[in-house]
Simulated assay, not measured.
Amino acid sequence: MRPLRIPFIQNTLAWVLAAWMRFCFATIRWTHQNEGAAEAVWKQGGGVLAVFWHSRIGLSPACWPLDRATPAKALISLSADGEFIAKAVARQGFPAVRGSSTNKDKAKAAKGGTQALRDGLKQLKVGGLAITPDGPRGPVRQMAEGLPMLAKISGAPALFIGLSCNPAIRLNSWDKAVLPLPFGKGAIVWDAADYPEGAEMADVVAAWTERLNAVEAEADAITGLKRV
């Protein structure tokens, strides 16, 4: 049995990870770029899609100030690893909407993805939904259609978020995930967009992929973190 499938181990590691992230976020010197785009979206209230690549999920709570940002939930996969991440993120004020279209069992994948879409749209009627459009298993920085589809159906704006810190831990995972280290340099870069009326889905995927890559690259340039 994999350790993360054992509830006690899962809960303990989630608590440790959440505590470590809070400590690091408090000691990092943050640079905020184009924060006005985020503030304008939060001021409107209602639904918003908070978007960042899967490799930066360990930095994501730093970009969402609970005292003024739209209350949000995170779309987390149905895997055991997803459950662990969901618990760590939930300890920092982000309850999870569970579901994923990536699963070896196609029937279960379809059911989980459909339910996640329903739950995501329901959440977007009242608040924010954090989503990693290349998750849960990649390919890295390749956006699936789920994000623009949610934006098109819901009418909610997408808030693209580039997150970086240096120094950082690089995990040996498919996405080379970044975890923070304390007392370093951090950067958060924002960009916002609505689904263009009448646009083809493939065109939106390409344009939004470029914009999300741009804010992440800008954040890495600020901190000096090497892109991989």
Rank of each mutant, 00 (worst) to 15 (best):
A109W: 04
G162D: 07
R68V: 05
I153F: 03
M21S: 08
V41M: 13
G184S: 03
A219T: 03
L17V: 10
P65W: 02
I57E: 04
R56K: 12
W30R: 11
D191E: 14
D119W: 03
T31P: 05
S100I: 01
P182L: 03
F52H: 14
R211H: 09
W64S: 01
P65F: 03
I6D: 09
A19C: 04
R29P: 00
G224V: 09
D194P: 00
L159G: 07
I28T: 13
E216T: 15
T209V: 09
S154N: 03
I85H: 00
S79K: 04
P167R: 06
E145S: 15
L117S: 02
T31H: 15
L121F: 06
I76S: 00
W15N: 01
G46E: 10
G58Y: 08
T31I: 04
L59W: 05
D175P: 08
A217K: 08
L212R: 05
S79D: 04
A207V: 08
R5G: 12
N213G: 08
W208G: 11
D67C: 02
S55A: 15
A80L: 01
P148A: 12
T70C: 13
K87S: 00
D220N: 13
K152S: 11
S77D: 07
V126H: 14
R227S: 14
A107N: 07
L75I: 10
P180N: 00
V178Y: 02
C24L: 00
L117A: 10
G186N: 03
G184H: 03
F25R: 02
W53C: 11
S164W: 08
A206F: 06
A19W: 06
E200K: 14
K125A: 12
P7Q: 08
K111E: 02
S154I: 00
V48Q: 05
A110T: 15
P61V: 01
L124A: 06
K111I: 05
H54T: 11
P61A: 00
P3Y: 10
W208A: 10
I222Q: 02
W208V: 13
V228N: 13
I6Q: 07
D220L: 11
A40E: 15
R170A: 13
K185T: 11
K43H: 12
I28N: 03
H32T: 06
S77R: 08
D105A: 08
R91W: 02
T132H: 04
I188W: 04
A202S: 14
I153H: 06
G162S: 06
R5V: 00
Q92D: 02
P133D: 15
L78A: 14
G112L: 05
K125F: 02
I76Q: 00
R118A: 08
P136M: 09
V48A: 15
P182M: 02
P139M: 15
W174L: 10
D67L: 06
A151H: 12
S77M: 11
A193N: 08
E218H: 11
T27S: 11
L124R: 09
A221F: 02
M1R: 03
G58W: 10
P7A: 08
M149C: 05
A86S: 10
A69R: 00
K73E: 09
K108E: 10
I57A: 07
G46N: 11
E200F: 08
S101G: 11
S79R: 04
A19D: 04
A199N: 09
R29Q: 14
W64V: 06
M21L: 03
N103V: 05
A214M: 12
T223K: 03
